[in-house]
């Protein structure tokens, strides 16, 4: 069961509390999108789930195990794949090395997984020897998603995959996420401000404001007007 159950979590940067009792469940095979304005705690929530930041209260369980105290690398090895915001690549490693270093993390590299991610993002094939720091925003984003997928995660967490990306690549990323979700039933948690993109992909949504979840529901019955008032800057 690759469920993530977030139970009343609190988190803070030093003395500044950022998350106030967030509870959210992402069930196996589901794609849930978290939306909200800038600074409401969306990335902090993902950092708490992936282990980059500790909790000051509450608990997180994955696959039926409490992972609240596990390190970020231990959570990744349990099957939590994370694509952080922005240029999430190792800049001085080539595209190939970015994939290789993660693919061989447990010993023998998985050649099949490498071929699979290149099939998903064919543009990367001609960029294999280029340092990742020299890739464009769109290319780097594709590499970042490929790097997360190469580990065959049980759940894929994406933080604003459309940020600063040209429309054609957004479509490609949307198709890839959609295909993965539909074809393999991969569980996904998406943070996104591009509402139409998020609603097209997600099964369920949660809206955050001020470090709390203020609305949840099924995307099939979501009303755009309601989002406009909750997400508007």
């Amino acid at each position: 069961m690759s469920d993530i159950i977030i139970n009343d979590i609190h988190a803070a940067y030093g003395r500044t509390a950022v998350l106030f009792g967030i509870s959210l469940e992402v069930r196996e095979g589901e794609l849930v999108c978290v939306m909200g304005r800038n600074g409401v705690g969306k990335t902090t929530l993902l950092n708490a789930i992936t282990g980059l930041m500790g909790l000051t209260g509450g608990s997180i369980s994955f696959d039926g195990k409490d992972i609240s105290k596990a390190s970020a690398s231990a959570r990744a090895r349990m099957g939590i794949g994370y694509v952080p915001q922005g240029h999430a690549v190792f800049p001085q490693l080539t595209t190939r090395e970015n994939l290789q270093v993660v693919n061989e993390r447990l010993g023998k590299p998985d050649k099949e997984a490498l071929n699979e991610v290149i099939d998903l993002f064919p543009a990367l094939a001609s960029l294999m020897n280029r340092p990742a720091g020299l890739l464009s925003g769109g290319q780097a984003k594709q590499l970042a998603i490929a790097r997360a997928l190469i580990t065959r995660p049980k759940i894929l967490i994406l933080d604003e995959p459309t940020e600063g990306i040209q429309p054609s690549i957004i479509h490609q990323i949307e198709d890839t996420i959609n295909d993965l979700h539909k074809a393999t039933g991969m569980t996904m948690l998406l943070v996104e401000q591009y509402v139409e993109f998020a609603l097209r992909l997600a099964d369920r949504y949660a809206v955050m404001d001020g470090g709390r979840i203020v609305d949840t529901g099924d995307t099939a019955t979501a009303e755009m007007d309601r989002f406009a008032s909750l997400i508007a800057i």
């Binding site: 992936t50 282990g51 980059l52 390190s71 970020a72 690398s73 959570r75 990744a76 090895r77 939590i80 994370y82 952080p84 999430a88 690549v89 190792f90 270093v101 993660v102 993390r105 447990l106 790097r147 997360a148 580990t151």
Partner: peptide, 10 residues
């Protein structure tokens, strides 16, 4: 951080 969330142990 990226290395950690990619499953490498810093």
């Amino acid at each position: 951080d990226l290395a950690a969330v990619s499953g490498l142990s810093p």
